[in-house]
Structures are given as structure tokens and as C-alpha cells.
Design a protein around this nucleic acid. Sequence first.
DNA 1: ATGGTAGCTGGGCTA
Length: 257
Amino acid sequence: MKIASWNVNSLRVRQSQVENWLLDQRPDVLVLQEIKMTDDLFPEDIYAELGYQALWSGQKTYNGVAILVQDGLMIDSDVIKAIPGFEDPQQRVLAATVDGVRIVDLYVPNGSEVGSEKYQYKLDWFAALQEWIAEERNRHEKMVILGDFNIAPADADVHNPKRWQGKILCSDLERQALEKLLSLGFVDTFRKFNTEGGQYSWWDYRSGGFARNQGLRIDLILSSLAMEGVAQDSWIDTEPRGWEQPSDHAPVIAEYL
DNA sequence: ATGGTAGCTGGGCTA
């Protein structure tokens, strides 16, 4: 099973890129973030023609997530579109069980700036996520939580750790929240297969970050221990970041037996 | 250095 995640930063703008990437990579599952469209505009028919079933949870202008699943793979009925019990108008969560694997697509809040209201929202959101995932973990041995986490797990995931120290995406409280989530029994799948630094999934549009590989690894694929046991490889496909009019994120991929 | 770019929208917010 090949599972991937891509923050597309507007599905309308990136539509043809997503189609081309799907045809090239043929993942079993592709989860998207920041589709930035209302539900009625989601191009379900285009994906059906490419052989993918789709689930989506959109909103106007911001956020929005989707899951694409190859035809033939069974999607169970337990689809969840929000963190249970957490009041939130922002569409950042989509969960479904695909072929017996619990898939959780996340667009974690950015947080804007340490100490800001949006930072507190990010921490509150992540605390609610923690509670919910703990319950999900009790129901599902096979789980993959993936998406834009907006947290660089360690300094090895940051091009300039000194400049980013304590800043948003790298602060202690954010990293501790991620560690706590991992302690439920998940591993950072990319790091199981890659130990070198300098490998990133996001590069700021500003100041030519991609050309200089000044990025952060903030798009993650967390595998439950049962899935880690069958993980074969994980990598970041930096090619689409170099395409014309790219998303600021690259797709991340994990392969399982 | 508090900019720089991109997307949505139609001025300002978010990232």
C-alpha cells in the first residue's frame, strides 16, 4: 500500500498538477490539505475518471482537506470530518478506514507566532487531537496519521536551526505536543528510512527558499507500530516543488507491504 | 532586515 500526503495550497490552482502526479505515482491513497474550496466545487468527477474515489471536507477561502482512494479499495462507513467534541469552524480533519487501515488526514493550524491567539488555538487544537487519537488508537491497530503538521520535529528538520529556535513551527511546546502524540504508539515514518538532514517538505515562497533548499520538514506520516512493521520506504518527492506555479509544499510518501 | 511571495478576494487575512 502506497500512501501519500500533499498540501496543495488551493486545489483549483493545483488541479492539473495533482492529476499528473496521481498518474505518475499511482498511490493507493493521497490525502490533500488546503484545498481552499467549498464542498460543492470539489472536482469529484475528475478523480473518478482517474480511478479514484474521493472524500472531502471543504470551506470557503481557507483550509479544507480531502482523501483520494484507488478504486477497488474498500472505504468503510466510519468517516469523521472533525475532532469529536472540539468546536471548530475550520475544516482541518478527515478520517476514514481504507482497506482496514485507519487513515487520518490532518491540516494542523500554523500558529502564526509564538504567544499569539493563533498559537494558543494550535496548542488547544493539538490537545484535542491527542485525546481523540488516543481513542482511535484503541479501536484500530493499523493507523496512519499524515498531513501538514506545521511542526518540524527536530533541528535536523530545519535548514537554519539557530534562526528558527523557539520560533513558530519549532517551539518547545509544539515539539512536545508532537512527542506526546508519538508516545501513543506512532513513529515518524520518514525518519525510519532517512537519517540525513537537509530534507524538507516545505519551502517559503518568499526569498527563493526552494532554490537554496532553505526549508523545513513539517509534512509527516505517522505510522502505528503495526504499520511501522510493514513499512518498506518513505520519501519526499521534491520534483513538484520545482514545477511552474508550485505549491509551497512537496508530496510525502510511505510504502507498506 | 519585520521584508519578501502566493492565494483568495476585491481590502486584508492567512500562510
